[in-house]
């Protein structure tokens, strides 16, 4: 390393020159800028162009076989029942799974923030364990937990008098099963963020409310919830973006079935693009997903802003 800087100086003639200090930041940013251009900016532009072509397995052999088809892919997409099915499934997952994850996380965070609870850092770690676990590995484990004959879930439910069910092979129950798994896997992350947010709420607010005769329920709704609003916005956006990209869970647990009831947008894109090599079609799917994520994030931020202004 010494040698490099030594050579730099020689190149400009005398040590400590302006040259190196003016150009150094560009040299330092250059590697990431080049990588970003090659593996992000160019591909995103290329994907955009690709979504207007019929790029398929023949084009894979020679790129020039791809023909311009205008809005053809988008037209096909919007008239493809499978696309609407995957949209529906992804939103089902998001609308049920998102709030559930955030609610469980908030509950866990409020409990763990109470000074009455002992061994808090240890218990916190327990809730967080699923977050760091490898998604594919725990998806495999949960597939067996949902097993109709020997699975733990049916066994646990039998104590409540619930009849056994083949969760992942039932078009009605497969998605709820995946949602339950996703809540288990992800709530620990949101809980950690909420815990950090709770720590920033000044104790005096609660003391003052207590003097004014507010009960713990009132204190929660009137102090904790509004004070956590910025944190809630952050976790909502993160959950939203993450959940719209649902992929590995259905890939491992159901393969998108039964009867496409767990087919997500990204899973459909993966199939079209990398299994059937309909890359033009898949590219248009990817863009629709990106636009959906963008619009929802914008709406979410606007709604929260207005909510907190009131």
């Amino acid at each position: 390393m010494l040698k490099i800087s030594h050579r730099d100086k020689k190149a400009v003639g005398y040590p400590g020159t302006r040259w190196s200090s003016v150009n150094a930041p560009y040299l330092f940013i250059a590697p990431s800028f080049v990588l970003l251009a090659v593996f992000f900016v160019i591909p995103v532009v290329a994907a955009f162009l690709m979504s207007f072509t019929d790029f398929d397995i023949y084009s894979l052999a020679h790129f020039r076989f791809a023909r311009f088809v205008g809005l053809g892919n988008y037209m096909n997409l919007f008239s493809d029942p499978l696309f609407w099915k995957s949209m529906f499934n992804t939103f089902y997952f998001l609308i049920l799974g998102g709030p559930l994850t955030i609610f469980v996380a908030l509950l866990a965070a409020v409990l763990l923030n109470s000074k009455l609870v002992k061994f808090r850092s240890l218990l916190r770690l327990g809730f967080f364990a699923p977050v760091v676990a490898t998604l594919v590995a725990v998806s495999v484990v949960w597939k067996y937990i949902y097993d109709p004959r020997f699975g733990l879930l049916n066994y646990a439910l039998s104590f409540l008098g619930v009849a056994p069910r083949d969760w992942l092979s039932d078009p009605v129950w497969a998605m709820p099963a995946i949602i339950l798994f996703a809540v288990w896997k992800n709530f620990g992350y949101t809980m950690m963020i909420f815990l950090a947010g709770l720590q920033t709420i000044p104790e005096v607010l609660y003391d003052a409310a207590g003097i004014d005769g507010a009960g713990s329920w009132q204190r929660f709704w009137r102090i904790t919830v509004p004070m956590l609003a910025p944190t809630t916005l952050f976790v909502t956006v993160v959950t939203l973006i993450g959940y719209l990209q649902l992929f590995a869970e259905p890939y491992i647990m159901t393969g998108g079935g039964p009867m496409n009831s767990t087919l997500s947008i990204v899973l459909l894109m993966y199939r079209q693009g990398f299994r059937y090599w309909q890359m033009g079609y898949a590219a248009s799917l990817a863009f629709v997903l990106a636009i959906v994520i963008f619009i929802l994030t914008m709406i979410e931020m606007r709604v929260q802003k207005e909510g907190s202004a009131v």
């Binding site: 591909p43 290329a46 990398f274 863009f287």
Partner: peptide
Amino acid sequence: VTMVIPGQVGMLPVFLI
């Protein structure tokens, strides 16, 4: 800006590259 665009968008061309 790159943080706002999901990774899947460029995936197909990256594969080709």
